[in-house]
Design a protein around this nucleic acid. Structure first.
Length: 424
DNA sequence: TGACGTCAAGATCCG
DNA sequence: CGGATCTTGACGTCA
């Protein structure tokens, strides 16, 4: 059982994946961006290993215009050894990676050119995984595509185009139910005919159900039969609805109690879970800490180091309570720990609690900062305190982004690894 | 024709 | 000039 997250890593230095726009996609820029992105990918994987995260979806932006004629760089040759090194790290650490072309890669399109470019895009994704020499369990996830007013014909076109695909693609391609057109029952039908593994997505099924009386667990069981030994463990996508947004929108973070309810149902099966959530790796670490029986208090201490100023800016009471909770070095109060954190982060906070956090963080710099920096932080905090601005939240962000700059300038690793600058 | 989703890159403005 | 903020891109489908 592996738990992972998709595409980007938040709040970890050195993990940015960069893109570029078409008019800047010359060989020189592309070389620089790809080189940097491969460094970032390596840093992401190193971070993942350190934090017990063994499942990760690689961003399709790794190679900008990877499947387009715009990109004329022979990146497959130029970066061959870099890809191999990354692949070696993946193998040595038993990581499982995947890729997921977006909603614009449409294999069943009525427009032949669109369908052809979808094939090119799948080949690009294969290139990345093949260059890293990833095994067959490293998959490429695709949706079925559009309906074009005739679902049956649309499904037939998907099948026809699938059959014609290169064997390199077929050994990696898996399909997923989507949130408005093809439901899980339709995807299973296609999969059973073509012998393709199916990724079940619980939130897509909630938004686009086949039959609301059939549970997630029942669908996961049905999907499991589409996975064979050579495909590796079954994979599912798990996400939670953002209550304030429209149906199908991913939540900011994973609510741990809701996740564990789901997890306990499926924990007997060896299923890998890809979390789709805005706070990415932050939720992955949380879920892994919660389900692991081998973890020690040090895992929570590490987390506390990252969360503490975010909690402090919301509630001093929670800050003290959590600090007290993890004092006992022989305990592992993971549920209490995260429920206090989730509770604190949902709070409104106050001007005083925010200033308290500012001052704690400023404490790292007050001895080494120059006069200009001292004046600037004072002015920013004063401005926030006065509350005259229309947008007080914006004033808080200004203070925090200056503190982040200081963290970078003085290379304060403790703060650079903190969630304080990421969480609002 | 614009919404959809997604985010940073790019463009423009401001002091 | 640097920083802040506003806009665009890149993709295909569908209302």
């Amino acid at each position: 059982m592996k738990i992972g997250y998709a595409c980007l890593t938040v709040s970890v230095p050195g993990t940015d994946i960069r893109g570029c726009i078409a008019k800047n996609a010359n060989n020189e820029n592309l070389y620089d961006i790809i080189s940097m992105n491969l460094d970032s990918l390596m840093n992401i994987l190193i971070y993942n290993v350190k934090n017990g995260i063994r499942l990760f979806r690689i961003s399709s932006d790794l190679i900008p215009f990877g499947s387009s004629v715009i990109n004329k760089l022979e990146w497959q040759k130029i970066f061959k050894s870099r890809f191999f090194e990354i692949g070696e790290y993946i193998r040595n650490n038993q990581l499982r990676v995947s890729m997921h072309p977006g909603q614009y890669t449409v294999l069943n399109s009525l427009n032949e050119d669109v369908a052809k470019r979808a094939v090119d895009d799948l080949l690009y994704h294969c290139d990345v995984l093949d260059l890293m020499e990833c095994d067959n369990s490293c998959k490429i996830i695709l949706h079925i595509g559009g309906a074009y007013d005739n679902k049956q014909k649309a499904i037939e076109r998907f099948k026809e185009n699938y059959i014609k695909l290169d064997a390199r693609i077929k050994k990696r391609l898996i399909i997923e139910n989507d949130d408005r057109i093809f439901n899980i029952s339709e995807v299973l039908d296609i999969a059973n005919q073509l012998k393709i593994p199916v990724v079940y997505d619980n939130l897509h099924n909630y938004a686009n159900p086949y039959d609301e009386s059939i549970t997630d667990l029942q669908w996961i069981k049905q999907c499991s039969s589409t996975w064979t030994k050579k495909d590796g463990n079954q994979k599912i996508h798990y996400s939670q609805q953002d209550k304030g947004k429209k149906t199908g929108s991913h939540s900011q973070t994973i609510s741990l109690s809701e996740f564990l309810q789901f997890y306990r149902n499926i924990s007997s099966s060896d299923t890998d879970i890809m979390l789709e959530v805005k706070d990415k790796n932050i939720s992955a670490v949380k879920c892994i800490n919660a389900v692991s029986d081998k973890r020690k208090i040090s895992a929570l201490e590490d987390e506390w180091a990252r969360y503490k100023y975010s909690v402090l800016e919301k509630s001093h009471k929670h800050y003290l309570e959590i600090r007290n909770l993890i004092k006992d070095k022989n305990s592992y109060p993971v549920m209490e720990f995260y429920s206090l954190i989730e509770e604190a982060l949902k709070m409104q906070g106050s001007v005083n609690s925010s200033i308290n956090a500012f001052e704690h963080v400023w404490g790292y710099f007050k001895d080494k900062a120059d006069d200009k920096e001292k004046k600037k932080i004072q002015a920013l905090i004063e401005n926030y305190k006065s509350g005259t601005s229309v947008n007080i939240e914006n004033d808080s962000i200004k203070v925090k982004s200056f503190l982040m700059k200081l963290s970078e300038k003085y290379n304060e690793a403790y703060l650079l690894n903190s969630y304080y600058f990421y969480l609002q």
